[in-house]
């Protein structure tokens, strides 16, 4: 590496052995961090130090490290994914921080997301919402012709915008009420605007909204913190669309 400037970062990290442990913050100092380290690589450096010292490394979720899998889940200085617009934790880089900074790292906090260990939470509740209706039923068989069902370009674009959701749960983590309205709104909307989704539109929205409640998510109070937290820039217009779909399903 050509540059010699390195940073020393002070970390305040949430440590919790398991779901039943009360958990507490621990202070750490990481040295030798360059501006090219991603946030997760910085935590890798910390964990190397902890392992060498014979201590338990900090458990955190990660997978693709290229911003598309939705695994990384950390609240950094009070903001899910660290607060950089349209950026997951893995794509957040240490050049956004300064030498000597103190950084708080906390897990997603919501009743529906119990903590598994340290920064790892159980996001199965989002899967339950999908299982309740986030699909279209179709008969298997021959592959249908590509243009057998015509879809207007604006509708296709709208569905794609909703389908950008990677299901990371940052919207829930950012919501003061721990609500999953942006996630569910995006999943309802991506089908609602397409012809393939119309057949099951009523049962889908009804069942997914019921699943949100059953999973222990809070209610929406239109703070729009979810939209600020979303690493994919999902718009709260999809919550409005879900509300509309839900009203339509009553008649």
């Amino acid at each position: 590496m050509s540059d010699h400037k390195t940073m020393t970062i002070n970390l305040v990290v949430w440590r919790q052995k398991n779901a039943n442990d009360t958990g507490k913050f621990e202070n750490y100092t990481v040295k030798g961090i360059t501006e090219h380290h991603s946030f997760l690589e910085m935590l890798d450096v910390l964990n190397e130090d902890l392992i060498k010292a014979g201590k338990q490394p900090v458990a955190f979720d990660h997978d693709c490290r290229e911003g598309i899998c939705g695994m990384c889940s950390q609240v950094i200085n009070g903001m899910p994914h660290g607060g950089q617009e349209r950026t997951t934790v893995c794509q957040l880089h240490m050049r956004k921080f300064h030498d000597g900074d103190t950084i708080y790292i906390e897990p997603w906090r919501a009743r529906a997301f119990p903590i598994v260990k340290d920064l790892v939470v159980d996001r199965e509740a989002l899967d339950k919402i999908i299982q309740a209706g986030g699909y279209t039923s179709c008969h298997t068989g021959g592959v249908p012709d590509g243009n057998a069902i015509l879809i207007p370009k604006p509708a296709a674009d709208e569905a794609m915008d909703a389908a950008e959701c990677i299901g990371c749960g940052a919207c829930v983590a950012g919501c003061p009420n721990g609500a999953a309205m942006l996630f569910t709104g995006a999943k309802v909307s991506q089908f609602a605007v397409l012809p393939q989704g119309k057949a099951e539109a009523k049962t889908r929205v009804t069942n997914m909204v019921q699943a949100m409640k059953d999973c222990g998510f809070g209610n929406c109070t239109n703070h729009y913190e979810c939209m600020a937290a979303c690493p994919k820039g999902i718009n709260v217009k999809f919550i409005a669309r879900m509300n509309r779909e839900y009203l339509k399903a009553q008649f």
Binding site: V12, F25, V75, N77, G78, M79, G83, Y104, E106, R109, A110, R111, A112, C175, P176, N177, G178, A179, G216, F217, G218, N219, T221, H223, Y224, E225, M227, A228
Partner: peptide, 21 residues
């Protein structure tokens, strides 16, 4: 609804950094 919503996030973050609220 308020009582339910307070329960939606039982533990607050150590750092409060709301942006849209």
């Amino acid at each position: 609804l308020t009582i339910e919503n307070r329960g939606g996030r039982p533990t607050d973050y150590a750092v409060k950094a709301t942006r849209k609220a």
